[in-house]
Design a protein around this nucleic acid. Structure first.
Lengths: 205, 205, 205, 205
DNA sequence: GTCTAAACGAGACGGTACGTCCAGTCTTTGT
DNA sequence: ACAAAGACTGGACGTACCGTCTCGTTTAGAC
């Protein structure tokens, strides 16, 4: 009989604490040093862990940073604020608040840059970060349809395309404002942005 | 009457050809190797130039890549296509065409990432790339006002804010679509995007 | 009973073979290139070793060459040739034979030159090379005293000064003849030199 | 303004002052930096001269240092001190006094080391430094013969060999004592050395 | 209560690129 | 024609990390 279990039943198990410590150390190092000066040796030292332990769990710097950063995005939530505009504005502000955190600022763009010539990395980013947040768009649309602010979708393909468009517009604008223009996403900007977006979407009205 | 350069009329002058060769070599290396594997030694070799010559002119990899990439953005133009929507759609497609070029794809996000913890670099990017392209938004608005598609601005501060908002929305959405979502900016997407944007702007007046 | 090395029983141990290979490669490079054209990168390559490994073990070129050269001096021996004069003549010829070897010729004077403004290096040379060979003078004197050629020393301080004087005279003359005058130390010269020295020492008693 | 030289009408004449300044700057740099850290650019700067001027006059560092150092050896003189022993002792002390000067200490051994694999350099050293000092041995011998301390030479070849031997013994011992053993050549040592040498030479007595 | 195999820390290893420095040459303008 | 200035090619420097590799040492679970 062969063991079906993917994990080894014998030998010393991997320390669960190490994972946590490594990810925390990575975020800490991102804050202090930024992506390009972050070294795995330094992360290992901060985490009180040998370099080998780190390499046993992540293939490299990129993947480690993706995982270290991904967790922070799960904080995003979209409580019902009563209208589509309010919901969007809330998410925009929340999203911006995450983006300005220095560990994100330093890490996110860098891994996206790396992903432009590393397909596996792009897939990891999509799975860990991007797609996880699309739920917000879906949720918001559903809520708006319930409220009657948006018509129910007729063509499901067209609907999917619209979700992607909205996602690119929201995420893109906030990221560009924050990281490229380096201007704050304050309620005023969020309001102006949301107004344009909601009006643009509301063609049926 | 006026001295062109207040300093150094003595000594061997810097080779003008070297600058050109170095920037071209940088773009070539970006295409072949991508940002992270690009080394200044390799660029120097490709340009047929000593490493010292390169370091004499640029402080480092980041600044070199900004300059190498900036030139390509000046290709952007906005011929009069007859309507605001057509003008925007045209620029979006052109912009996307530049972004998918491998030397841009590899380099742009990386330097933006670096700029998150290097103020001088961010300023260089803003001066060399970002601000230079805002002219397109200004030009487009002026043309739309001439056509009567948009009212003349009344409050100049408000107008400036709107220019920034539009710039972040257009650039952000296209960059996100291209580099994060890694989906093509085809005429269909460009059309959908433009429709939302123009509708949103029109109604907000 | 006693721990050989009080430090570092942990981590991967240093390769003993590397030391040997590096010193051999250094001697080889000295022969082919001479001191001034010898580079540590080249030595590392010849030894099949990374540059870092070399720097981990020696602080620089000088110290490495001292160690590479020192071993060769341990070949010096002084078999009993029956008389003080014969013993000295034998050592002079042996010493000269070592000095004309190209790895010594290239390296020895250079490190001595460096040592004139590097106290640690001078100490290293003294410990590794100079003091190790003073044994020959001591041995020769003891033997001559046994034979009755020299009287037993009475004042130990005076005796130590004489040892130093003889050492400087022998080593100095042979080195000067070989490396500065660039003339061969043949049996004839060795005989003439020994005659002067033995005569001078004998009469001074 | 009047032309200084009636001969050379054409071209700017070489500055004689430059030679002096360069050699002085070389000695100064040798004192401060030592041979290995002395750079020709630095010498040129100290001398208030362009690097090109320096290269126009000397082929390289070695030759420059030989010339810078050689002048100092011409200070050696041997006034008649009344006996062979006193003459030798006087020269030994003078020679030692020159050798301990830092510009000599740093430079002399280094160029000798280089000369072991550069025949032209060895010849230059021989011509500029070594052979110039052999006159002292010849002078001393002649004087001793006049005084009757040494017999007149019979075999001129044998006599030449003896001159060389004495030169190697004196120069070698003093150099070795000073630069390798790094002990002072004080009157006590000089006396002991001279005693051995004179006794050794005086076989006819 | 051992046995045992993987995980662990430490740190040496072969590499690659870094950014700096100097050698020696070349190209300007000035005298 | 020579000088001063300084840019140029080329190459070694010593350092920093990379990702891998040996070591000796835990340590949790299987027996």
């Amino acid at each position: 009989m062969q063991s079906r279990s993917p994990v080894s039943r014998t030998g010393r198990p991997r320390s669960a604490a190490a994972d946590t410590a490594i990810l925390a150390a990575t975020r800490e190092a991102l804050v202090e040093l930024g992506w390009s000066k972050l070294t795995l040796g330094d992360v290992a030292t901060r985490a009180g862990v040998a370099k080998t332990t780190l390499y046993r769990r992540w293939p490299g710097k990129n993947e480690l940073v993706v995982d270290a950063v991904a967790a922070l995005f799960d904080e995003l939530e979209m409580p019902d604020r009563g209208s589509l505009a309010a919901d969007i504005e809330g998410v925009v502000l929340q999203f911006a608040a995450i983006l300005v955190r220095p560990e994100i600022k330093s890490g996110l763009m860098a891994v996206v840059a790396e992903s432009t010539h590393d397909d596996a990395l792009r897939e990891r980013i999509r799975a860990s970060i991007v797609d996880r947040q699309k739920r917000l768009v879906l949720e918001g649309r559903a809520r708006a349809q319930q409220r009657g602010e948006l018509p129910p979708e007729t063509d499901p393909e067209e609907a999917a395309r619209t979700v992607d468009l909205i996602f690119d517009m929201v995420a893109g604008a906030v990221v560009h404002r924050t990281l490229v223009s380096a201007e704050p996403v304050d309620p005023e900007w969020a309001g102006a942005f949301t107004r344009v977006l909601v009006l643009g979407l509301g063609r049926s009205q």
